[in-house]
Structure formats: structure tokens, C-alpha cells
Design a binder for these strands. Structure first.
Lengths: 147, 147
DNA sequence: GGCATCTAGTACGATGATAGGACTATTTTA
DNA sequence: TAAAATAGTCCTATCATCGTACTAGATGCC
């Protein structure tokens, strides 16, 4: 029975572990508002801002949900909305000052987690893991960002 | 920038994709109630029933949340609660008839997904992925089921 | 045994997350 | 230029989440 665990469940466990650690790190740093779904959305904002619909697709939630999450992030000062110069219907969600601060905290914890995982697995296996997941993205990412 | 994606995010994408597909399959089969959090809890029920606290830990939610989810699952006929013969305080959550039906549907979709992933990655890489994730579980699973 | 302590689960209440349906404004297509 | 598509929001209903507090049963310790 040991081999019967679905690969997806294994991913959930590892992913959720990382997510919890990052949220905890943010809380310890004083960013006690900021929930997991909010962080998930915020983590997908690109350097020059990202459209709400795009964020919704990547986080795999409805756009109404993304609207609510961005509302809260905006009210808390983590992000801001600016008009998209290329399309008057659209608005770009961008990281605001407070957002940049917490992202730094998150990135640091992220790096720590990656280092721990890498140490536990060994460099070769870690590399294989990353490679396999990156390939998998081709068929599991609905947005299929060409990077 | 292409290599900067955190391994955790890659896992989220794949995991969420699988989860969505399984839920969709269940809906198509007529099980239109049943939400993602409910399914997550239900998926962790063992063959002889599992305690609520245990389910909460494995799904990484508070026990109050697990109570609510099990309530809904029970009302919809997917699971049932029976007294734990070894502890009068505890109750075992067990799969009920309707639950067994939808699990069959879920397992089938799960197998299909694994097959697709395996085909996309190739057998060797799929095996490496499973191996790495299984190892990772040792340091990321708070419940650390011995299995 | 008997009392303090711990554990399993529930109840209440407040807030966040989620999405269906409908709507406006703008852009794209035919 | 009219028709269709797209970006985003609003309204509303329901689910999910968890802090705090509580009850009932189990355990540890003298």
C-alpha cells in the first residue's frame, strides 16, 4: 500500500508545508493580516504588474474571487491598481511598498525551504524534481505562460 | 528568469490541476454538491474509518473546520460517523455508500491523470518525481504517517 | 479511589473565500 | 458600423476558516 499515494497528494503535502512556513514567516515579521489565498494571488504578480484575469487564471480561481482578494490586498497596502495603458478596460495590479517588504521576507523563507529540501534530497534528485515539475507545467498550467 | 520559479509553486499548479479535474469528473458523474475542501477531507478517510482530529491534521485545517466539512459530507450522504469502540469521546468518520460511489469515479480520473503525466514525462522521470516527493514527505508531512 | 489535567469533539460567532448571474465600459471582429 | 468578445465590478448566497469557549470522557499522579 506504500506506493499507492497519488503523486498529487504528495505535492499537496509539500506545497502546503512551504506555504504555511512562508505565511508564518510573514506573520512573525509583523504582517499579521495577509491570508493564504491573498498571498497566492500576490505571489503571481509580475514585475510590471499583472491583470486581474491573468492572476485569477494562474491561481485557478474565478475572477470574482480574485477581485475580492485584490480588494483586500489593496486596502492593506500590499498592492495597487493602475490603469493598463494598452487597454482602457483593464487595470494592472502592481506590488505596492508594503507588498515589496513582505515579498522580501517571503523570498528569504522560500530560499531557506529550497535549501532544506535540496539538502534532504541531494542536489541530483532536487534537480530531477525541478525538471519533472517544470515539464509537468506544460500540461497542467491552464495559463501556460511562455515565460 | 525562467529558472526562478519556486518548486512549491510548480507543485501547486500541478496539484491544483489534478484536483480540479477530479472535482469536474465527479460533477459530470452527477455529484454536483461536494466541494474541494470536502473532497480533501474525504480523501483522507482510511478503510476502517478515521478520527476527525486525524483528518484535520492531515488536511492541515483546524478541527472546527473539519467538523463543518464532515457535517456537510454526512448530510449529503458521503460519510457517516460511528462511535470509536476504543474511546467513547471519539467518533470514527467512515465512508458511506454514496461516498464509495464517488470515490470510484475519483480514483478512475486519478489513474487517468497519472497515466497522462507519466506519458508526458516518460516513465523514468515520473519515477524520479515520485521518489523525490516521497522523500520530501519525510520533512514536510506534519502528521508523518508511518505507512 | 479521587482530583487535576489532558484530549475528542462540538457550539457560537465573526470574517474571509468562492462563484453564479448580471451589468458597464471598452476592444475586437466581421 | 453593428455584433461579438473581453476586463472588470457589483450583488448575493453559500461555504470555509478559525478564535474562544464548552462538555464529556480518558489519563496521570498522589
Amino acid at each position: 500500500m506504500a506506493e499507492e499515494i497519488h503523486v498529487g497528494v504528495l505535492m499537496f503535502t509539500a506545497y502546503r508545508s512551504a506555504e504555511n512556513r512562508i505565511i508564518d514567516a510573514a506573520r512573525r515579521a509583523g504582517y499579521t493580516d495577509l491570508t493564504v489565498p491573498q498571498a497566492r494571488i500576490a505571489a503571481r504578480i509580475g514585475p510590471h504588474g499583472t491583470r486581474l484575469t491573468e492572476l485569477a487564471e494562474q491561481a485557478q480561481v474565478a475572477k470574482q474571487t480574485a477581485t475580492v482578494l485584490v480588494d483586500r490586498l489593496e486596502r492593506a497596502g500590499y498592492v495597487e491598481r493602475v490603469v493598463d495603458p494598452t487597454d482602457a478596460r483593464a487595470r494592472l495590479v502592481r506590488i505596492a511598498a508594503r507588498g515589496a517588504e513582505v515579498i522580501a521576507v517571503a523570498r528569504a523563507e522560500e530560499a531557506r525551504i529550497e535549501a532544506e529540501w535540496s539538502e534532504h534530497l541531494g542536489r541530483r534528485r532536487m534537480q530531477q524534481l525541478r525538471e519533472a515539475l517544470t515539464m509537468l507545467r506544460e500540461i497542467t498550467d491552464p495559463y501556460a505562460a511562455p515565460d
